[in-house]
Write a protein that binds this DNA or RNA. Structure first.
Length: 435
DNA sequence: CTCCCTTTGAAGGGA
DNA sequence: TCCCTTCAAAGGGAG
């Protein structure tokens, strides 16, 4: 990842990400120059898929801010800072995501009709393959000519199915609420921008189910407990924790920390029951574990193989194994995209009627790229704070600690990879055979 | 039951 | 410094 310390400092700690983001946009522009006629059809079709994915929308001004032109980094950072400061201010006012104060924070998006980046509808080849398999009626064209995962599209797809968004409101799902204390206040998307969700199977627009409504709405803490929470390690809804919580109860794994104000704010909203006297869910008051901690006994990671380090995986019973059992598994902090996925997954699932995470993640990946800088910056900031908090909670922890604790995964996206891998063939066959 | 798939980003290690 | 690998989440699919 290109490093460009362009003066952003570590205010957001996302310089590099932003840079990479910009590069992608430039790449898009380049590719868009080679747009072929056949791609019109391709895009038209893929736009159908997008309609089901892109629930979205945004104001014209917001659209204008979308990635077409790399903007000064500082500019976006300042805007982002404004977001956070505003979010924090409103949070202090006692409001949780109060109103649509942030038109620039639409998590619902439609393809930008003028922007080569957003307009492309960009289905990655594998996504096309998979989506085509999943939704044959969409007739997702092949990825011919697509080198980039985001195929360019002429910015004239005004023939897209009109995206009509219902005015919707508070969604029970309020992801990232765990970060609400000082992070962002997403605001409510303009009411006229509610997407008319396209049934991915039939291609027929359908009225959004209540569960498909935007999760980015004000939500009082008391309401949190009533609904599932995608980011809800804080919300003890069945299995919905940012990190797994031992079912048998909660230990108090946190070392005593000296935290600055910002950290304590974050921690108070997430980790410290002592600082959270009003937890609405009757969470065990004696200790909420850091979500990154997973008891080995109930570790959700399949761990039956001997990929663990010798110290962590001993076949001979004994003190070593006991130690291992006692040693909590500290997970990696989530990165920006993971946070985004956690937040958006439920919505995408609802819209697409898909549940396969592989497919959902492909969609989310595309949406991630379609986010504006400001929108992504929020997640980068969250991730940065997450890492910061993580490092404070576990000073000695290293990502290396978790190496080998998970089944080794082959990571070859090589085009010549044989379609041996079960679903791999399904996901990538077309992509690998299209060029 | 276990692993794979898929996504992006962070981090570690080797060259 | 660059490149590669692993892991983080998620849940259906497949063996």
């Amino acid at each position: 990842m290109p490093q460009l310390n362009g003066g952003g400092g570590d205010d957001l700690g996302a310089n590099d990400e932003m840079i990479s983001f910009k590069d992608e946009g430039e790449q898009e522009e380049k590719i868009s120059e080679n747009v072929s006629a056949e791609r019109d059809l391709d895009d038209l079709k893929s736009s159908l898929v997008n309609e089901s994915e892109n629930n979205s929308s945004s104001s014209d001004s917001e659209q204008a801010e979308r990635r077409p032109q790399p903007r000064p980094v500082l500019d976006s950072y300042e805007k982002t800072r404004d977001y956070f400061s505003e979010a924090f201010r409103r949070q202090q006012d006692g409001g949780f995501f109060k109103g649509p104060h942030y038109p620039g924070y639409p998590f619902f998006m439609i393809p930008d009709l003028t922007n080569p980046y957003l307009s492309n509808g960009a289905l990655s080849p594998s996504a096309r393959t998979y989506l085509q398999m999943k939704w044959p009626l969409l007739d997702v064209p092949g990825a011919a000519g697509l080198k980039d995962s985001r195929s360019p599209t002429p910015g004239h797809l005004s023939n897209k199915v009109p995206v009509v968004q219902h005015a919707h409101h508070v969604h029970p799902l309020t992801p990232l609420i765990t970060y609400s204390n000082e992070h962002f206040s997403p605001g409510t998307p303009p009411s006229h921008l509610s997407p008319e969700i396209l049934d991915p199977k039939t291609g027929i627009p359908r009225t959004p189910h209540p569960s498909e409504l935007s999760p980015y709405y004000p939500l009082s803490p008391g309401a949190v407990g009533q609904i599932p929470h995608p980011l809800g390690w804080l919300v003890p809804q069945q299995g919905q924790h940012m990190y797994s919580i031992p079912p048998g109860g909660f230990r108090h794994p946190y070392p005593t920390l000296a935290m600055n104000a910002s950290m304590s704010s974050l921690v108070s909203s997430r980790f410290s029951p002592h600082m959270m006297p009003h937890h609405p869910h009757g969470m065990h008051q004696t200790g909420i574990p850091h979500p990154a901690i997973v008891s080995p006994a109930i570790k959700q990671e399949p761990n039956t193989h001997d990929h663990m380090s010798p110290s962590m995986h001993s076949k001979s019973p004994g003190p070593a194994k006991k130690e291992e059992d006692k040693k909590p598994h500290i997970k990696k902090p989530l990165n920006a995209f993971m946070l985004y996925m956690k937040e958006m997954r439920a919505k995408v699932v609802a819209e697409c009627t898909l549940k396969e995470s592989a497919a959902i993640n492909q969609i989310l990946g595309r949406r991630w790229h379609s986010l504006s800088r400001e929108e992504q910056a929020k997640y980068y900031e969250l991730a940065r704070k997450e890492r910061q908090l993580h490092s404070q909670l576990y000073p000695g922890w290293s990502a290396r600690d978790n190496y080998g604790k998970r089944k080794k995964r082959k990571r070859d996206n090589k085009p010549d990879s044989t379609p041996e891998g079960k679903g791999a063939a399904s996901y990538t066959w077309l992509a690998t055979n299209s060029f």
